[in-house]
Nucleic acid binder design. Structure first.
Lengths: 105, 105
DNA sequence: TGTATAAATGAACAATTGTTCATAAGTTTG
DNA sequence: CAAACTTATGAACAATTGTTCATTTATACA
């Protein structure tokens, strides 16, 4: 007997769904997606560097970055006056790629 | 010469980043993730069916569903008294899988 | 037609996110 | 140590999302 449906193996617990939602929400913002993009190609960048590249005001960017760090997506290390952020949860790259690959977007 | 970085090919335009963010946001909620999960395995389900399975109140679920439909993630067709929803943008399955596969979640 | 069932809608409100601004905290260098 | 520079922080406010509830719309069927 064949199943009446696509049969995609995906059985997330409620807890896991909440975590997935949490990560998605943390990423779901143009500026934050841009940050992930940048850090996907750069290993690590300082706040002011990111700020200039993305043309986002320091404080606002800092809020975004620290939020993403808090939620485990980024990591940061200080070097002198600068603080360098890096992509910790590299899986989010794949997530973005999945959608970016959609032709209809 | 080797690049100083991971070199992930991902160059989204601002417009595309906004669209990706849009889809992520539309999915980033435990109930909506559960809906995607269900519809990944069921082809199509009526509102009351989903409502019972997920234990979410009719009106609230309807709001979620129509939002997802509006944003192109789901489609719906009426059959008699019921309205059946189906997954239109199947790519979101992959997106969720990407994250669900993370062992650390 | 009237009643029951299924789902959508819209207003009101709650909760969460996003943004701005002023200021603080850490670091370097003269 | 003071000045300059980089980033973080917190309060205030704006904007968006999520939820509830009452009501409406659409369909079936007695």
């Amino acid at each position: 007997m064949t199943p009446a449906a696509p049969a995609v193996d995906m059985n997330l617990s409620v807890e896991k769904m909440e975590k997935v939602a949490f990560i998605l929400k943390t990423t779901a913002h143009p500026t934050r997606i841009a940050v992930v993009q940048l850090l996907a190609n750069h290993e690590s960048l300082s706040v002011s560097d990111i700020s200039e590249r993305l043309n986002v005001e320091q404080s606002l960017l800092s809020h975004h970055l620290s939020g993403m760090k808090l939620k485990g997506i980024l990591s940061s290390t200080r070097d002198g006056k600068n603080i360098y952020y890096a992509l910790k949860m590299r899986e989010v790259i794949d997530v973005i790629q999945c959608l970016a690959a959609c032709t209809f977007l």
